[in-house]
Design a protein around this nucleic acid. Sequence first.
DNA 1: GCCAACGTTGGC
DNA 2: GCCAACGTTGGC
Length: 158
Amino acid sequence: MRHWLIKSEPSSFSWDDLWKLPKRTTSWEGVRNYQARNFLRDMRVGDLAFFYHSSAEPNAIIGVAEIVREAYPDPTQFDVADSHYDPKSKREAPMWSTVDVRAREPLARPVTLTELRAAKGLEKMELLRKGSRLSVTPVSAAEWAVVCKLAITAGSGR
DNA sequence: GCCAACGTTGGC
DNA sequence: GCCAACGTTGGC
């Protein structure tokens, strides 16, 4: 089983939004970056993903989601009315993929970006790389464990 | 609101 | 194939 991290701006789609959906499940549509797309295609049913709030107050990993359906063509690429419409993509050869994710559980406590940066063992984490903008990134088993531990450790404040 | 970092586009 | 221009992301 592999681990991942998926980013979302809570102003457009938050952890709570996902939690309130039927079956707590959504299609992770709109990824338009080849590297991120390739990661989506590597995902398998049962893989777990941290749900990260970007451009948020605070920026933090807030919950754990599970992949419940593997990559399939992202319907928004063919939808002229959608902001993610891509005229270059053909139905015979879709360029973009999506997966279905289900909220599993919130972290006992959100782990903020500041805490992640300060943590031992996360130095190589893709999310923390300078200039990293990938909305879907792999997380190593060791990194996953470190974050889970941080979530159950009393943090500074809140 | 600013701006650095990055990916993409298009002219040549 | 190079690279300048542009648009976007996302932390601050």
